[in-house]
Design a protein around this nucleic acid. Structure first.
Length: 880
RNA sequence: GCCCGGGUGGCGAAAUCGGUAAACGCGGGCGACUUAAAAUCGCCUGGCCACAGGCCGUGCAGGUUCGAGUCCUGCCCCGGGCACCA
């Protein structure tokens, strides 16, 4: 029998499950290691080949750390609330619970078929009442601390999805999910006060072992900005002032006008009657325009004069107050002092409306453009001559002394819009009382479960959630007074469940509290967290926020939940493309076909270079194309003259480049898939799936099998193994491989770890029979990467138990360096010869050997060496 | 527009302390085994030339250095993020 993963793998998967090989409990005699995958959403499509990449990486680390003596927590569960199941329910009437259960089962089956070493006794599901109960309990804690509040806010309403989206879920005025249009509407919503934690969320990033770009994205998202608030008195309203935020208080003398956001509350108050109709028209126009439209023409500044004037506090000058949509209501105070000389946006606005421009910082030419950089203050009375940083400080002091303003810090981060007009989410554990106030549902009554529905559609035009229609659920009694009250028709966003799931894994069946304190103190923080970079700000920021609240509540002992973060790259699909002019898919026999170099991109898509006619893209699968062996060029199977363009991109149904992991497991086994995904390149980097590539890995695993087992006679027998370490060469190769693979796995460089194992398998039994020590080391080193094969071989080597807890092999340090090494001899920086020298050869010995080399001498051409550089153990360079 | 990544053989990549460029794998070529094919095993595989040898070669153009894929300056291309945040 040859190596047969379809027989070996299910057998070992069953073994692990039945024996609970990977179940863990707190064990204070061992160091702990918590390794976590980003919470999967069980979609209807099942896993594609990209999912297992991150899971394989964490599984390798989990298995490796167990062998290194760590007590490893490696759990999995389901982030099972979410839009797709609900949209499916809207279409088919199937309850999302049914869809979700079905999908979870499929995901579990697939994930188990990859042989991941999860502790299945800790499996959780965010939609289960036992989980939802604690999500709601956490909301109560947020509410009690004043971190959850309701507000009438302009929200991102997506008519297509029938819900409100968080700012983070809107990209260029469209929904992140499905790319549907989004409009701004004022609605009463639940908000979470994440802005209270802005400073800590920013500060604590510093100590995290996360990729720098992700930290940077979070820093920019939080957007800390130092400046000053300045109060401007109004010329006609003695009791009213307008406060602005500026990062450049030093330019106050250059403030020649003021701009309010159209939504600013004082707009209606200060507008002069003769300007009112124009102002109102502008406000209405702004409201009705989508964010997208506003952004699209950001170049052109628009605005209207209110007729009112403010007084510049530094010089008493009256400056006009305008409204314009380039000032955002949600940032700072929603009002600015405009300094056209030193701000590009203000400059453009001033030019458009012919407002005065004054230079107050030297170093530029305000006649031609705004000078927004630092310089020296001019035309600025008491700060004249000061450099920008000093001028800022001086102005802040001046303002503070007179009670006109103060130095302050502002953040871009906004409060988190936390309610959705959906059915398939956690209901809010609150009731609305007759007097307009709200109260929490008593803790004993949690979880508050969802009622059954006949119709999952959103209520449409009145912007209400489906739950609003369920009267006997909505209408309830206040348990405190017995008076009528109403439940909240909104549900929480999908992020809620994933904000704390890593804590529930510590103690998943606890009925008394969300997690046990002792378990938290033992297991937290997460030592390694692996997932896609698409969660850079959303999930990772929200989860950090909640964690800090838990910290303040004394529920967790670490400030941060995820000590180390790694983003895996995507597995891409390969497809091949050409173009034709059969735009309406008529199958016209006279159709013209074009290769990539015969077309160009017009405004409405591809057009032919020769005629400019519109073209349609056509895609072919790898299996259907013809590849020229000589040149590597790819051709259409039916039209050999048509050269196809290779395109590597995200897998999608429309491209026909999706690879199913079920097919891969069936054809080559889970071990091959795991190894292949790790072998194609660094974990962080995106790489294309290749059908040929996995064959190479499959062959390698077969070689491992045959190295230990003799299957020529038809009954696979263990080969005769030489006891002990074998020859000196074999012992050295074994030691070098152990040292190399250990180092690579520690740094999660699995691709090079695998290549080192390939070298071992290739060379270990080349000149002498395989020694037992080498065979056992190979199997143990292979175990984290290809666990099924390793378990099988381990058993055949005579070990009755799983190797999951076998000690990791140790390299004999003394064997790591050869006695004789190769040194490169260079002449003037170019390699000319190689020298074999003892590993501890002296500088003089190497020099003598190099100068004795014929090749070196011929390239020196009789010249005297001017300088000789010796790099110990590496090379000698003779300059002459 | 701004900010991050990244450009190395036909392909995925390695070289991460400035020190032998291309380890390992795919693809390709040649050979062994075979009636044959598959599988397997062995060797070769960056380009060019006056071919026991030499020249060129890590996106492009320069620079620093005995020595540059690696450091510096300018530019080009690809991927991602942000985008009126005062």
């Amino acid at each position: 029998m040859a190596y047969d993963p379809t027989e070996i793998e299910p057998r070992w998967q069953k073994y692990w499950l039945e024996r609970k090989t990977f179940s863990v409990e707190i064990d204070r005699s061992k160091p702990k290691y918590y390794v976590l995958d980003m919470f999967p959403y069980p979609s209807g499509d099942g896993l594609h080949v990209g999912h297992p990449e991150g899971y394989t990486a964490t599984d390798i680390m989990a298995r490796y750390k167990r062998m290194r003596g760590f007590n490893v927590l490696h759990p999995i569960g389901w982030d099972a609330f979410g839009l797709p199941a609900e949209q499916y329910a809207i279409k088919t009437g199937t309850h999302p619970r049914i869809t979700t259960q079905r999908n979870v089962e499929n995901f579990r089956r697939q994930i188990q078929s990859f042989g991941f070493s999860y502790d299945w006794s800790r499996e959780i599901d965010t939609t289960s009442p036992e989980y939802t109960r604690w999500t709601q309990w956490i909301f109560c804690k947020l509410y009690e601390r004043g971190l959850a509040y309701q507000a009438e806010v302009p929200v991102n309403w997506c008519p297509e999805l029938g819900t409100v989206l968080a700012n983070e879920e809107v990209i260029d005025g469209r929904s992140e999910v499905g790319s549907h249009p989004v409009v701004r509407l004022p609605l009463r919503q639940w908000m979470l006060r994440i802005t209270d934690y802005a400073e800590r969320l920013l500060e604590d990033l510093a100590d995290l072992d996360w990729p720098e770009p992700i930290k940077k994205m979070q820093r920019e998202w939080i957007g800390r900005s130092e400046g000053a608030r300045v109060r401007f008195a109004l010329a006609d309203h003695e009791d009213t002032t307008i406060e602005v935020f500026t990062t450049r208080p030093d330019t106050l003398f250059g403030a020649t006008y003021m701009v309010l956001a159209p939504e600013h509350e004082l707009v209606a108050v200060i507008t002069r009657d003769d300007q009112r109709s124009q102002v109102e028209a502008y406000v209405n126009r702004t409201q009705s325009r989508s964010e997208r439209a506003r952004l699209a023409d950001a170049e052109e500044k628009t605005g209207v004069f209110t007729g009112a004037f403010a007084t510049n506090p530094v010089n008493g000058e009256a400056i006009p107050i305008w409204i314009a949509d380039y000032v955002l209501a949600g940032y700072g105070t929603g009002a600015i002092m405009a300094v056209p000389g030193h701000d590009e946006r203000d400059y453009a606005f001033a030019k458009t409306f012919d407002l005065p421009i004054i230079e107050v910082v030297s170093g530029g030419d305000v006649g031609h453009a705004a000078h927004s950089g630092d310089g020296v203050a001019v035309n600025s009375d008491f700060i004249d001559g000061l450099a920008t940083p000093e001028a800022k400080t001086r102005m802040n002091i001046w303002l503070e002394e007179r009670g006109l303003g103060a130095a302050t810090v502002t953040y871009k981060l906004r409060d988190w819009l936390f309610s959705r007009q959906r059915y398939w989410g956690e209901p809010f554990p609150v009731i609305h009382l007759e007097d307009g106030s709200t109260a929490l549902v008593p803790e004993d009554d949690l979880p508050l479960t969802l009622p059954e529905l006949d119709d999952y559609r959103p209520s449409g035009d009145d912007f209400e959630a489906p739950l609003a229609r369920v009267r006997d659920w909505i209408e309830t009694l206040d348990p405190a007074t017995g008076r009528p009250a109403k439940r909240d028709a909104n549900t929480m966003p999908q992020w809620a469940g994933s904000c704390w799931y890593f804590l529930r894994f510590l103690d998943p069946h606890n009925d008394n509290e969300p997690w046990d304190q002792e378990a938290e103190r033992y297991w937290m923080p997460v030592d390694l967290y692996v997932g896609g970079a698409e969660h850079a700000v959303l999930h990772l920021l929200y989860a950090r926020f909640w964690h800090k609240v838990f910290f303040d509540l004394g529920l967790v002992h670490t400030k941060e939940p995820f000590a180390k973060l790694v983003n895996q790259g995507m597995i891409l699909g390969e497809s091949f493309r050409y173009y034709d002019d059969d735009i309406s898919d008529l199958g016209d026999p006279g159709v013209r076909r074009f290769s990539a170099d015969q077309i160009e991109l017009g405004e409405d898509g591809p057009v032919a270079k020769d005629g400019g006619g519109a073209l349609k893209v056509r895609w072919l699968n790898h299996a259907d194309v013809v590849i020229d062996k000589e040149s590597g060029a790819v051709h259409h199977p039916d039209f050999p003259d048509l050269t196809l363009e290779r395109v590597v991109e995200k897998m999608s149904k429309s491209r026909g480049n999706v690879v199913s992991p079920d097919d891969v497991v069936q054809a080559h086994g889970a071990d091959s898939m795991r190894l292949y995904e790790m072998f194609i390149g660094p974990l962080e980097k995106a790489a294309p799936w290749s059908t040929e590539g996995i064959m190479g890995i499959y062959r390698f695993l077969q070689r491992c099998w045959r190295l230990l087992l003799d299957d020529t006679s038809g009954e696979e027998r263990l080969r005769e193994l030489v006891d002990g370490p074998g020859t000196a060469k074999q012992a050295r190769l074994r030691a070098q491989t152990i040292a190399g693979v250990t180092e690579e796995i520690e740094n999660m460089r699995f691709n090079t770890a695998i290549s080192k194992l390939m070298v071992l398998v290739r060379d270990i039994a080349k000149d002498a029979p395989l020694p037992r020590e080498a065979a056992e080391a190979l199997v143990l080193l292979l175990a984290p990467l290809a666990p099924h094969l390793a378990e099988e071989l381990w058993q055949r080597l005579g070990h009755p138990d799983t190797l999951a807890y076998e000690p990791w092999p140790v390299a004999d340090e003394s064997l790591l360096v050869d006695d004789e090494i190769t040194i490169v001899a260079q002449v003037n920086g170019k390699k000319r010869d190689e020298l074999r020298v003892p590993k501890d050869a002296t500088r003089d010995q190497i020099e003598a050997l190099a100068l004795a080399s014929k090749r070196v001498q011929s390239h020196l051409g009789g010249r005297e060496p001017k300088k000789i550089i010796v790099v110990p153990g590496r090379l000698i360079n003779i300059v002459g």
